[in-house]
Design a protein around this nucleic acid. Structure first.
Length: 352
DNA sequence: TTCGATGATTCGGC
DNA sequence: GCCGAATCATCGAA
C-alpha cells in the first residue's frame, strides 16, 4: 500500500531517463527491516522483466510497455534517493509521535492492587503455605477455635484455595501461551509484509506492545475473578468461624478436672494454660475465657455446681490414688480443699 | 419455640 | 495484661 503511494507520488515527478546511479540515503534507519537493501523493494526491480515485486506482479507478464518504461524510469530517477529520505523522515516522525503517546504506559494501579492481593492470599507467587497463612490470619481475625472442627475447616479452606490457585495458574498459562502464539504470528506476518512495505522494528515493537496490552486486560479480568473467588471463600470461612461451637466433651472434662482439682486456686499459669489448650485442642485465650466464665459461674451458684464438683473431686482422688498405687507413693490426693473457692462436701461414694 | 447452658466480648479496676 | 462482672449470641435439649 505504502509502495503504491510512493509510486503515485513519484509518478508525478518529471522523468529523466538518463538517471544517475541510485543510492540509498545513509541515514535511513528502517532499512534493516527490508530483507534486501535494494531500491528494488521501493520501486521494483531494475529488470523490467521482473515487473517490480509484489506491487507489480503482473507487470512482467501483462503490463503495458508504457507502464514498465515509466517504472524503470522512476527507479532510475535522480530524485528518488531524496524522495526516499523524505518519506523515511516523515515515517520516522510519525512513529516517534505515536511512540511518544503510547509508550507512556504507567503501571495500572488496579493491576498492582490485584497482584498484591493475590500474592498476599497465596494465590500468585511461590506456593509456600500462603493459603494456610491466610487461613490462620482469618482464624485469628475471627478469634475462632481451631479445634477438631477447626482443623477440618482449615484444611478445607486450604484445599479450596489450592483449587483456586490451580485454576488461576492454569488459565494464566493458557493466556500467556495464546499471547505468545499470537505475538509470534503477528511478528511473522509483519516480517513477511516487510518484504513489500517498510516496517521498522519500532513498529513491530509497538504492535507487540498493543497485543500484550490487550492480553493484559484479559489477564486483569482473570485476576479480578480470582480475587472475588478468594474473597467469597474467605468470607464463608470467617462466617463459619464466627459461629460459636461448644467444646467437645473430652475438652470440657479436661478443663473441669483441672478446675476442680485446683479449686483453691483456679488460676492456671501460662504454662498450664498452654498444656490445657494442647490437650483440648483449643487456643490459650479460649482456656482463659473458659476459666474466667467458670470461676464467675461457680462463685455465683456454688450449689448448682456441687454435684459436678463432687464428681470431679472423686475422679481426681481415684486417679491420684491409682497413680500413687502405681508409683508406690502413698501421697495425699491432689485435691486442695482449703482457701480460694469454697470446696464441695462429699461422701466417699461421691454423694453429698 | 422456649430456655438454660455456654463460649465470646466488653468494660472498668488493679 | 489479667481479672471479675455484665452482657451478647449461639447451641441444643425439651
Amino acid at each position: 500500500m505504502r509502495r503504491r503511494r510512493q509510486q503515485c507520488l513519484t509518478s508525478a515527478l518529471p522523468l529523466n531517463l538518463s538517471c544517475p546511479p541510485l543510492t540509498l540515503s545513509p541515514c535511513y534507519p528502517i532499512s534493516r527491516c527490508w530483507p534486501e537493501e535494494s531500491p528494488a523493494h521501493w520501486g521494483g526491480s531494475d529488470d523490467p522483466a521482473e515487473g517490480g515485486g509484489a506491487g507489480g506482479g503482473t507487470a512482467g507478464g501483462g503490463l503495458p510497455l508504457n507502464f514498465q518504461h515509466r517504472k524503470h524510469a522512476l527507479n532510475c530517477h535522480r530524485m528518488k534517493p531524496a524522495l526516499f529520505s523524505v518519506l523515511c523522515e516523515i515515517k520516522e516522525k510519525t512513529v516517534l509521535s505515536i511512540r511518544g503517546i503510547q509508550d507512556e504506559d504507567p503501571p495500572d494501579p488496579q493491576i498492582m492492587r490485584l497482584d498484591n492481593m493475590l500474592l498476599a492470599e497465596g494465590v500468585s507467587g511461590p506456593e509456600k503455605g500462603g493459603g494456610s497463612a491466610a487461613a490462620a490470619a482469618a482464624a485469628a481475625a475471627a478469634g475462632g477455635s481451631p479445634g477438631a472442627d477447626g482443623g477440618i475447616e482449615h484444611s478445607d479452606y486450604r484445599a479450596k484455595l489450592a483449587q483456586i490457585r490451580q485454576i488461576y495458574h492454569s488459565e494464566l498459562e493458557k493466556y500467556e501461551q495464546a499471547c505468545s502464539e499470537f505475538t509470534n504470528h503477528v511478528m511473522n506476518l509483519l516480517r513477511e509484509q516487510s518484504r513489500t512495505r517498510p516496517i521498522s522494528p519500532k513498529e513491530i515493537e509497538r504492535m507487540v506492545a498493543i497485543i500484550h496490552r490487550k492480553f493484559s486486560s484479559i489477564q486483569m479480568q482473570l485476576k479480578q475473578s480470582t480475587c472475588e473467588a478468594v474473597m467469597i471463600l474467605r468470607s464463608r470461612f470467617l462466617d463459619a468461624r464466627r459461629k460459636r461451637r461448644n467444646f467437645n466433651k473430652q475438652a470440657t472434662e479436661v478443663l473441669n478436672e483441672y478446675f476442680y482439682s485446683h479449686l483453691s486456686n483456679p488460676y492456671p499459669s501460662e504454662e498450664a494454660k498452654e498444656e490445657l489448650a494442647k490437650k483440648c485442642a483449643i487456643t490459650v485465650s479460649q482456656v482463659s475465657n473458659w476459666f474466667g466464665n467458670k470461676r464467675i459461674r461457680y462463685k455465683k451458684n456454688i450449689g448448682k455446681f456441687q454435684e459436678e464438683a463432687n464428681l470431679y473431686a472423686v475422679k481426681t482422688a481415684v486417679d491420684a490414688a491409682s497413680v500413687s498405687a502405681q508409683a508406690s507413693q502413698a501421697n495425699s490426693p491432689a485435691t486442695p480443699t482449703s482457701g480460694g473457692y469454697p470446696a464441695p462436701c462429699y461422701t466417699p461414694d461421691g454423694r453429698l
